[in-house]
């Protein structure tokens, strides 16, 4: 079986986000970009399944600007067998990503497609669900545990839901999106970085896959959340009561 993993290049989660002065988006020039943490978890899970002898190959897919190749290199250094880069000059909305993935699934025929539950840049949380819909595959979203049964060709997924855990059993092929607690991704070791150098990355354009890139969304404005006001230290309880009553009007 082959596992396909989608990995997205995003502004590193530890970077302080800055909005562009013209409010058209966030600043990405000279900003550290890394793999979306949820995608790292997705890749880690695929690698573990492969290491357990339940899959033969892990293919990482990334879409976007030319430097998505860096993210694919990271995937290969973590242990993916090969990469696919669909080059697109502009930002892709989840539906387009799902459509491109569908075409790649048709080419590659994976038994399992694993994605992060969302990307930390746009927080959409849509791609996994959309691709499952387009393919007509069962989906296990927000996975916190994944157990694959090769014999029965099913995968059992624990999902974190509000009241607790929900366990689903999905027939393969299936789509899984990963939650934070699923696993702890590995580091890229030097021997693996070395090996990654000779692993192939195949390139496609959306046209080659017959997917039209368009967006029916228009970003009107991106703004920073309002700044929290600094707190004040009061000198007495009386003063506190006074402020609560006359300024905050809560008592």
């Amino acid at each position: 079986m082959k596992i396909m993993v989608a990995v997205k290049r995003v502004v590193d989660y530890a970077v302080k986000i800055r909005v562009k002065p013209d409010k058209s988006g966030v600043e990405t020039q000279n900003v550290k970009m890394s793999m979306n943490p949820f995608c790292e978890i997705a890749l880690e899970e695929a690698l573990r399944i492969k290491e357990a002898g339940l899959a033969k190959e892990v293919v990482a897919v990334s879409m976007g600007l030319a430097n998505c190749v860096d993210t694919l290199r990271t995937s290969l250094a973590m242990g993916a067998d090969r990469g696919i880069h669909v080059e697109a000059a502009r930002e892709l909305i989840p539906l387009t990503v799902a459509k491109i993935l569908k075409k790649l699934v048709e080419v590659e025929n994976p038994g399992l497609l694993i994605l992060g539950k969302q990307a930390i840049d746009d927080d959409c949380n849509q791609t996994g669900q959309m691709i499952a819909g387009l393919l007509g595959w069962p989906q296990g979203t927000f996975a916190s545990k994944v157990v694959l049964d090769k014999e029965k060709q099913v995968v059992t997924v624990d999902r974190e839901v509000d009241g607790g855990l929900e366990t689903l059993c999905l027939d393969l092929p299936a789509v899984i999106t990963t939650d934070l607690r699923l696993n702890q991704p590995r580091y890229a070791t030097l021997p693996n970085i070395m090996k990654a150098k000779s692993k192939p990355i195949k390139k496609y354009t959306p046209e080659e896959l017959n997917v039209e890139i368009k967006s029916d969304l228009e970003v009107v404005q991106v703004t920073e959340p309002p700044k929290r006001k600094a707190g004040v230290i009061l000198s007495s309880v009386d003063e506190l009561i006074d402020k609560l009553r006359n300024e905050a009007h809560v008592i």
Binding site: A77, Y187, L190
Partner: peptide, 26 residues
């Protein structure tokens, strides 16, 4: 990377990891 790989081949480094994001770096 080139430096690390050649040091590894030369036997100066026995193993190693390279941070891929700021979280790993920290």
């Amino acid at each position: 990377e080139a430096f690390l790989l050649s040091s590894m081949e030369g036997g100066l480094i026995s193993d190693g990891v390279l941070a891929q994001d700021i979280n790993q770096l920290s």
